[in-house]
Amino acid sequence: MRITTIYAKTIADLARPKLLVGYFVPLVTFALFFAVGTSNNMLTEGAPLFQQEAELYTVSLFMAYTLGVGMPLQAVCSVFCALTIASESQRGTLRILLSKPIKRWQLYLGTFAGIVSYGLLMGIVGLLVSAVLLYSFADVEAAALGAGVFGSMVGSLAYGLFSITLVTAIGLALAVYTKDRLRTAVGGFVIPVLTFVFITVNLFDLDLYDDFALYLIDPNRHLANVLVFLHETVGAGLPAETQVFMATFAGVYEQPDSPMHVPETLAYSSDFPLVLSVVLLTAVTLVAFVVGLREFSRMDV
């Protein structure tokens, strides 16, 4: 009962009209821009249905990874962490709350679950908005939408849940340690900002990336590995076109020898296996959650 009360209060705190407008207006604007741009450049006019499906899958995955359940959602979850425990701690409302006979882990878990589930809801809305815009602007058959757009959603949502959980675990730990809204939000931005930076690094195919084994600290690479892993595991699997895209964008696959002769399946990059990224990020999530909870259980307010 107490956890559900905290959970409901967290969601009520986050459901601020200004915050929703601030998130969805830029998101829809970028999604519109991407939908128009990709439908012109990445979709082949008059292609057979299976090709339309594969191309739509690639575009949907691209929009999900960069917009719907990607960096903006991770950033907004950091803000959520700042608006909940960090804000309560900084303002002083936590002093009254923690003086009541509620177990601290209940408060922490209720807040955590509230942020993750509300973030997931926003992710679902973001993916649906992307799907609607793609359908509106892409010259594709309606039959291609099933496998091309909705087929990618399960894997993308699983990825969204994973990345939101990761960012929220880190964000709440930061909130507990800093007790400061600004530092929590800025600290939580590190993952989405680094992801963006490393996308650029990958696109330019810089030598220093391999020379200095930067993939070890590249959140883009690890998150993309997780995205592919989840699509392969709980989703429908990735078509070759999407694999090429993930090779260029994040180095998950080895690039094909020739862009004109793409095999049915690309080989995974040998430097960092998918499963290792899943294990690594899961471990980071668990450690951040446990450290945050432990500190919250004994912190002075």
Partner: peptide, 25 residues
């Protein structure tokens, strides 16, 4: 009752006390 009580300003007293009451069991 702390020295400088801080509440959730957008809540009413009724909502606030019901929330605190539920949390307090």
């Amino acid at each position: 009752a702390p020295q400088d009580p801080v509440f959730y300003d957008s809540m009413t007293a009724d909502q606030y006390l019901k929330y605190i009451g539920t949390v307090a069991g």
